[in-house]
Design a protein around this nucleic acid. Structure first.
Length: 540
DNA sequence: CGGTTTTGACCCGCGC
DNA sequence: GCGCGGGTCAAAACCG
């Protein structure tokens, strides 16, 4: 359906716009051409009379034909209008549905948050803990930029967090030498803080999806526990089921199972990035590092420090096969408002989560999996990631893999398997470049360094800064980016926004034309994200 | 001095 | 039951 929705409007609009103009032109041309002939080609009056009658008859016939044609055009216009209105209404209903779901979910989360804060650590996940029934969900998103370096160096010392003091600055954004490198501004928009729970996307579809989404968005058992307890020890005990099997065992194995499942929901982002970590607009504190098997590159563990008790954690590791690819895996849900830059990624993760949840565990999920899905974002996710993702049940975790690291010219190339053991395909680079803008989380510290770089292949990148000092800007840019793209797609009257490099437009066009679902999904995602952005802005 | 990073140790789940 | 590997802790070091 989405395909029809998105693909339909532009041509329909064109027709509607063109037809009215065409009609008068046709009629005028007929009349205009007919009259001269009448006077120029009839030498005698008698002949002229006879011929005149014929001409009149012919003219009458032509007029009738023209009228008939006009009638047909009108009918077609009406038909197109009705189609368009139907599409619009359908889309609006979907949007409303989505908003309702979001609202309900947020309310539930808020209510839960109010109850939980006081809960003691030892207590197993609260009865209402929604995240406990999450399956092992792993959504992987890959965002490509150009690979500047093959350096696998896990981190730089000290310098990289020089700008972290500037509020939302991410410690990973400011490596001195890396300032020259591209930066992706990604924000995990889970939870009420972001205004857009990834979970909400799919929560209404089915229980399975509900469960998986919940964990991603607002509360997993781990999240709840983390929220409840400020103490690290408690966090450790409550945050992960593994630590205190006995704690949850009181009520039975079911809870344990749920708990274990809950803690595994993740969103993984793969991106070509030469910085130690990917700037996503949040503040992170590193709390551990490990050399994982099968990958010489160490895996770093970060904890969100935007809020003292934020349960969100992320793992950062470079791909063993291509050290320029950074794999960032997010886990948990933010329990605080996110900076604008951090919300940027919300749509991506939401869509991915939606896709994951809607697609359950099918490995072929991709586009077909989500097509026809009820939820707009789910559909969006399907469309967006469909061609570029793989969902598999491998390792007991349904996984969605999206790879945006490939060049724009190769929209659908196969990807190697990731450290997580799931395969992925390449997504049109245009998407990565457009959906996720370049930007530095610590723009305040290094303003210039975050705005300059553009991919050779694409020529232009939108970016949204990550600093709190200019909250509105990233949002605006983000929205702008969408509008621009939308306009380039004929999806909206996006004129007047900054220039989008032709290369981007071309790439987008190619990507879209090559994959209709992509187009439809983009439209859905744009709308959802835009709405969300507004909501986020409202929060400010 | 406060916050962050580093890094070895510890805990736990899982497979054999 | 044991070993392996992943994830986390926490003290020390580091940095602005």
């Amino acid at each position: 359906m989405e395909v029809a929705v998105v693909e339909g409007p532009p041509p329909q609009v064109m027709k509607e716009e063109n037809r009215p103009d065409a009609k008068p032109e046709i009629a005028a041309s007929m009349v205009g051409t007919a009259l001269p002939i009448v006077f120029e080609s009839f030498p005698s009056s008698t002949q002229r009379d006879a011929a005149g009658k014929k001409r009149e008859e012919q003219e009458q016939r032509r007029l009738e034909a023209a009228r008939a044609e006009m009638g047909e055009v009108r009918e077609e216009n009406e038909r197109l209008k009705s189609t368009l209105s139907r599409i619009v209404s359908q889309y609006q209903s979907l949007q409303m549905h989505f908003l309702d779901v979001v609202k309900v979910h947020e309310q539930a989360s808020a209510a839960k948050a109010e109850k939980l804060p006081v809960a003691p650590a030892p207590a197993p996940p609260p009865p209402a803990t929604t995240g406990t029934d999450d399956p092992d969900d792993l959504v992987s998103l890959s965002l490509g930029t150009r690979a500047n370096s093959g350096g696998g160096a896990p981190r730089r010392k000290g310098h990289e967090r020089s700008a972290s003091s500037s509020g939302t600055a991410d410690e990973m954004t400011t490596a001195g030498a890396d300032d020259e490198g591209h930066r992706l501004s990604l924000g995990l928009g889970f939870g009420r803080g972001s205004g857009l729970p990834a979970s909400t996307v799919a929560t209404d579809d089915d229980k399975a999806s509900h469960a998986s989404v919940r964990n991603l968005s607002s509360d997993s058992s781990g999240s709840a526990d983390y929220n409840d307890n400020a103490k690290p020890a408690d966090l450790a005990a409550a945050g992960t089921a593994r630590k205190s099997p006995s704690a949850g065992a009181g009520d039975g194995s079911a809870d344990d199972e749920v708990q274990q499942q809950a803690k595994k929901a993740r969103v993984s982002v793969r991106v070509k990035c030469d910085t130690p970590t990917m700037p996503d607009g949040c503040q992170w504190r590193k709390y551990g590092q490990k050399i994982s098997k099968g990958n010489p590159c160490p895996r770093a563990y970060y904890r969100c420090t935007v809020a003292p008790q934020c349960p969100v954690r992320k793992q950062v590791q470079r791909c063993a096969e291509d050290t320029s690819i950074l794999i960032t895996t997010y886990e948990g849900a933010h329990n605080h408002p996110l900076p604008p830059a951090a919300t940027a990624m919300a749509s991506t993760t939401s869509a991915a989560a939606a896709m994951l949840t809607s697609g359950s565990t099918s490995s072929a999920a991709s586009a077909s999996l989500v097509h026809g899905h009820h939820h707009p974002l789910a559909a969006a996710a399907a469309g967006l990631f469909g061609p570029t993702t793989m969902v598999s049940t491998a390792a007991s975790c349904p996984t969605i893999t999206l790879d945006l690291t490939s060049p724009a010219t190769a929209p659908h190339t196969l990807m190697h398997s990731s450290p997580y053991g799931f395969e992925s395909k390449a997504v049109p680079a245009a998407w990565s470049s457009g959906y996720l803008a370049y930007g530095g989380a610590s723009a305040g510290a290094h303003p210039s360094s975050y705005y300059a770089k553009s991919s050779p292949a694409l020529g232009h990148h939108q970016l949204f800064g990550g600093n709190l000092s200019a909250p509105s800007r990233p949002e605006q840019m983000y929205a702008q980016s969408y509008l621009q793209r939308a306009s380039s797609l004929g999806l909206g009257g996006g004129g007047g926004h900054g220039a989008v490099a032709p290369a981007v437009t071309d790439t987008l066009a190619k990507a879209i034309t090559s994959d209709p679902s992509f187009q439809s999904a983009l439209a859905a995602a744009i709308t959802s994200v835009m709405g969300r952005g507004g909501a986020a802005a409202a929060h400010k």
